[in-house]
Amino acid sequence: MTPSPTARRGPRRLIALLGATAAGLAMVACSSGGGAEDPADAGSESDSGGGTSGSAGDVGGTLTVFAAASLQEAFDVLLAAFGEQHPDVEVAPAVYDGSATLATQLEEGAGADVLATANEDTMERITTAGLEASTPEPFATNTLVIAVPTGNPEGIADLPDLNDTTFVICAPAVPCGDATVELFGLTGFAGAPVSQEQNVTAVAERVVNGDVGAGLVYGTDVAARSGELEAVVPTGADDVVNNYPIVELEGAQPAAAPFVEFVLSDEGQAVLSEHGFGAP
Rank of each mutant, 00 (worst) to 15 (best):
T2E: 03
T2P: 12
S4A: 07
S4Q: 08
I15T: 14
I15G: 08
L18D: 12
L18R: 12
A20C: 10
T21I: 11
A23V: 13
L25I: 07
M27A: 07
C30R: 14
S31H: 03
G34D: 05
A36V: 15
A36E: 09
D38C: 07
A40C: 06
D41N: 12
D47P: 05
G49V: 11
G49H: 08
G49A: 11
G49Y: 00
V59D: 11
T62M: 06
V65D: 02
V65N: 03
A67P: 00
A68Q: 04
S70I: 07
Q72K: 02
Q72L: 09
E73T: 15
F75M: 13
F75C: 01
D76T: 15
V77G: 09
A80F: 09
A81F: 11
F82S: 02
P87M: 15
A103T: 03
T104M: 06
E107H: 15
G109H: 11
A110H: 09
A112R: 00
D113S: 10
T117Q: 00
T117H: 00
T117M: 01
A118G: 07
T122C: 05
A129P: 07
G130I: 13
T135K: 12
T141G: 00
N142C: 06
L144M: 00
A147F: 03
V148E: 01
V148L: 03
G151W: 05
I156A: 04
L162I: 05
N163T: 15
D164M: 13
D164W: 09
V174C: 12
D178Y: 08
A179F: 03
E182S: 08
G188E: 05
P193T: 10
Q196A: 10
N199A: 10
V200W: 01
A204G: 05
E205D: 15
N209E: 06
G210M: 04
D211Q: 13
V212Y: 05
V212W: 02
G213I: 12
L216E: 08
Y218R: 11
G219C: 09
D221W: 10
D221Q: 14
V222W: 07
R225W: 02
R225S: 02
R225H: 15
S226H: 11
S226L: 04
G227M: 04
E230H: 09
A231Q: 04
V232K: 09
V232W: 07
V233T: 15
P234E: 01
P234H: 04
T235I: 06
G236A: 00
G236Q: 03
D238T: 12
D238E: 09
D239T: 06
V240R: 02
V241K: 01
N243D: 10
N243T: 14
V247G: 14
A252L: 12
A252K: 11
Q253I: 08
A256F: 07
F259A: 12
F259M: 08
D266G: 04
E267Q: 13
A270K: 15
A270H: 07
S273Q: 10
E274C: 04
G276S: 05
P280G: 03
